[in-house]
């Protein structure tokens, strides 16, 4: 999928940094990533991995203190350094966001109808009636019963799961080409989470919207993503098809993360497997590979930054270790 001739979104050497000189902090560091039409790309990372800054960069929302470098091309249009008017015409129209907390994404003072139609009236110049009809259509798409009644509700009158359905409908109002999901199920209860994931899969199957889902939850991502990118300390450390990444991860960090998840489908261990140490502090990154202080395979060569290399099957990896996935898994035991 990554090889398709013109990806919808093409990131090259993307950097997001704060401060200057020795104070410089690189939240995203020389990131290359493609998003193809119709695919769902998962981006996994923990605190300080740069996943949130990546998402903000795609929306041009990093704020005045951030410096962006490199390139983000959307259908050939450069988004890094684009004017705020240009970005505003894309944001919500071509690239739409579903954020983690539906309650803070919705304005408590406005009815659902007003919030759902705002983008479509602005971007698509729809009239009030047409926008309301579109809103009702989308509420039906996200499986909300009695859409015209719900349109009159305020956010507090809806359950958490329903609010998240509304924000998904809101993101789809202008028929965007790219849907960004920022931890879309983290704030939800586990049963509601399963419903929302199922809904997102159904919406993707129906609309074919290309999706980039950012999360720390490898469990929730497993049922969504075609490909998964793993970020650590602002860099891409591994990228593979979901099947490969979950079953045969090559990066010691990915392997350690997967094995440290307590699982209900496996026998209970006497102790939970762990990755020692702390997530990286971007203001004080170790020299070379950022994961090296926590890595069971650490070696003298890890003092230099590993470059991303590709395997014949397209699997990308930034690690000096040359062993097989099973040797990587073995290093943790």
């Amino acid at each position: 999928m990554a090889d398709s001739p013109a990806p919808l979104l093409q990131l090259r050497s993307l950097g997001v940094s704060y401060g200057r000189g020795i104070e410089e902090l690189r939240a995203v560091d020389t990131l290359d990533l493609d998003l193809a039409g119709r695919e769902c790309l998962g981006v996994v990372g923990e605190s300080g991995s740069g996943k949130t800054q990546l998402l903000l960069a795609l929306l041009g929302l990093n704020g005045p203190a951030a410096r962006l470098s490199g390139s983000i091309r959307y259908r050939g249009m450069e988004l890094v350094g684009a004017s705020s008017a240009q970005l505003a015409s894309i944001r919500g129209r071509r690239i739409a966001l579903v954020s983690q907390d539906p309650m803070s994404a919705l304005n408590p003072y406005l009815r659902i109808a007003t919030q759902l139609t705002e983008g479509a009236r602005r971007h698509l110049q729809l009239g009030r009636r047409a926008a309301l009809a579109r809103a009702a259509e989308l509420l039906a798409l996200v499986q909300i019963d009695a859409p015209s009644e719900r349109l009159r509700c305020y956010p507090h009158e809806l359950s958490g799961g329903m609010r998240q359905r509304v924000t998904i409908a809101m993101a789809l109002m202008c028929d965007p080409e790219i849907l960004l999901l920022d931890e879309p199920t983290t704030a939800l209860d586990v049963t509601v989470q399963a419903h929302v994931l199922e809904l997102l899969r159904a919406v993707r199957a129906r609309t074919g919207v290309a999706t980039l889902m950012v999360t720390h939850d490898l469990g929730a991502l497993a049922s969504m993503a075609n490909r998964v990118a793993v970020m650590y300390g602002g860099r891409l450390v591994e990228l593979a098809s979901a099947q490969q990444l979950y079953t045969a991860p090559r990066h010691p960090y990915t392997a350690g993360l997967l094995r440290s998840l307590p699982r209900l489908d496996q026998p209970l261990p006497a102790r939970l497997p762990v990755i020692g140490g702390q997530p990286p502090d971007l203001a004080d990154l170790p020299k070379g590979c950022a994961f090296s202080p926590r890595c069971p395979l650490v070696h003298a060569r890890c003092a230099s930054s590993p470059q991303l290399r590709a395997f014949p099957d397209g699997h990308l990896l930034a690690c000096h270790y040359e062993g097989t996935p099973s040797q990587v898994a073995g290093a943790w035991t």
Binding site: V190, L218, A220, A222, S223, A242, Y246, L258, R263, L264
Partner: peptide
């Protein structure tokens, strides 16, 4: 959710 693409 399980971290297994084959079992949603």
């Amino acid at each position: 959710p399980l971290p297994d693409p084959a079992r949603p």
